[in-house]
Design a binder for these strands. Structure first.
Length: 185
DNA sequence: GAGTAGATCCTCT
DNA sequence: GAGGATCTACTCA
């Protein structure tokens, strides 16, 4: 949280500050693809050493971007759910297909929600497995931190099928930030 | 403003 | 052959 996710494809730089994330707690988390130690072609990446990207297609439309966080054989992941745009806003708008020349700089749907932010940064499934130490895709730390008071916790979104695990407080977000998905309070 | 359907395709059973 | 870590637009009130 508070760090900056940067993509640099074809010399075009786009980046955004991370304002909303969800944790997926490995093999004991029903909402995780790795629940019960499941291991498939798709989620094989989750069992790799931390620091790589895990991207997959959801509902046939949306690319969801995760960061693998733990050691080899321990499939923990963080889903990046929302960014606050920093660099390359025009580029991102083009990728999303938004025009709105009048008020587009205030458009907070650009990187709001996991599907949108992946599209905005130009991240697709073939980036799955990319190291976040690469020059194309990485997370930068510019020293900025959100005050603890601004960080809120809640259950995760869109994981109702996971039973009790859907209630776990694994979602973290910046209070009042307009790019956070879900309903503002 | 709230609630719901439709999009759309890869992955696993 | 079914369903999903989602989003948008449209309906109805």
């Amino acid at each position: 949280m508070g760090k900056v996710l940067v993509s640099r494809f074809n010399g075009i730089i786009t980046s955004g500050r991370i304002v909303e994330v969800e944790a997926y707690n490995g093999i004991i988390d029903k909402a995780s693809h790795a629940f019960g130690g499941r291991r498939t072609n798709r989620n094989e990446i989750m069992y790799a050493n931390g620091g790589v990207a895990y991207v997959y297609l959801c509902y046939g439309i949306h690319h969801l971007f995760n960061v693998i966080t733990n050691n080899k054989e321990t499939p923990h992941a963080i889903l990046i759910r929302a960014l606050e745009p920093v660099i390359g806003i025009d580029e991102m708008l083009q990728r999303v297909g938004k025009t709105k020349p009048d008020s587009y700089r205030l458009d907070n749907t650009l990187t709001r929600g996991p599907g949108n932010l992946s599209k905005a940064l130009g991240i697709f499934t073939f980036h799955s497995g990319t190291s976040l130490g690469s020059k194309e895709l990485f997370i930068a730390d510019d020293g900025f931190v959100f005050p603890k008071k601004q960080i809120a916790v809640s259950p995760r979104i869109g994981v109702d099928y996971a039973g009790n695990d859907a209630l776990l407080p694994y979602r973290f977000y910046v209070k009042g930030n307009p790019f956070v998905s879900g309903k503002p309070k």
